[in-house]
């Protein structure tokens, strides 16, 4: 299995490091040819405005929309979540919204850098909390009925899934904890798993 990391801008290098650490060959995706070859995709944190423009520059907008429509399993963290959401509240004009997850998110909803924080996140079915790192993070304001909320912080969804799309407002690539990446890579998305089960 080939896991791609969208490498236009942002923390793609850290995602690669985590994937390599769990024994998965990760490849950087900058072109439509590279996108065509991956079985799973990670869209990293970064600046969603910049990543959105670079998707157009590199001719990746339509190919990515097509692959997402075909059910490409995708993990979007922070800026990645913004790009995958159906609605961006106060969004930047013309920014990509792939609508792979039926959620409304607000950019920088947790505030500026002074409000960036980390906090333990309780994920259903997991024995120990996951270290959630939120950097100028987007807030999930609402989710549609087909979205499964896998974790909340103070009543606000922070980790969600719809079909084979997984999004987090925090940065699992900044935590020294591989469980979310491992779960995303090992899950058999073709069978439409509903339950979030901690992997051995």
């Amino acid at each position: 299995m080939k896991v791609g990391v969208l490498a236009l801008q942002g923390a793609f290098g850290l995602h690669e490091q985590v994937l390599n650490r769990i024994g998965v060959a990760a490849v950087q995706v900058r072109t439509p040819e590279e996108l065509a070859e991956v079985d799973r995709l990670v869209i990293p944190g970064g600046e969603s405005t910049a990543i959105s423009k670079l998707l157009d520059v590199n001719g990746l907008g339509d190919p990515l929309a097509d692959r997402l429509a075909d059910g490409l399993p995708v993990l979007g963290t922070c800026a990645g979540m913004i790009l995958l959401a159906a609605e961006v509240v106060d969004g930047y004009p013309g920014q990509h919204r792939f609508g792979a997850i039926d959620a409304a998110v607000r950019r920088n909803g947790y505030g500026r850098q002074s409000e960036s924080f980390h906090a333990p996140i309780d994920i259903e079915g997991w024995e120990s909390a996951f270290p959630g790192v939120f950097i100028r993070a987007p807030v999930v304001e609402s989710v549609g009925r087909d979205v499964e909320v896998l974790a909340e912080l103070d009543g606000v969804p922070v980790l969600c899934r719809q079909g084979s799309t997984v999004v987090s407002s925090f940065h699992p690539e900044l935590a020294q904890d591989d469980r979310i990446h491992r779960w995303f890579v090992e899950q058999d998305w073709s069978t439409g798993h509903r339950w979030f089960v901690e992997q051995e």
Partner: peptide, 23 residues
Amino acid sequence: SMSGRETGTTLVKRGLAEMLKGG
């Protein structure tokens, strides 16, 4: 503060720099 949130740590400070990479 709330929910064990910690701000201003080295992790979140360096974290923003990580998000600016490639830019």
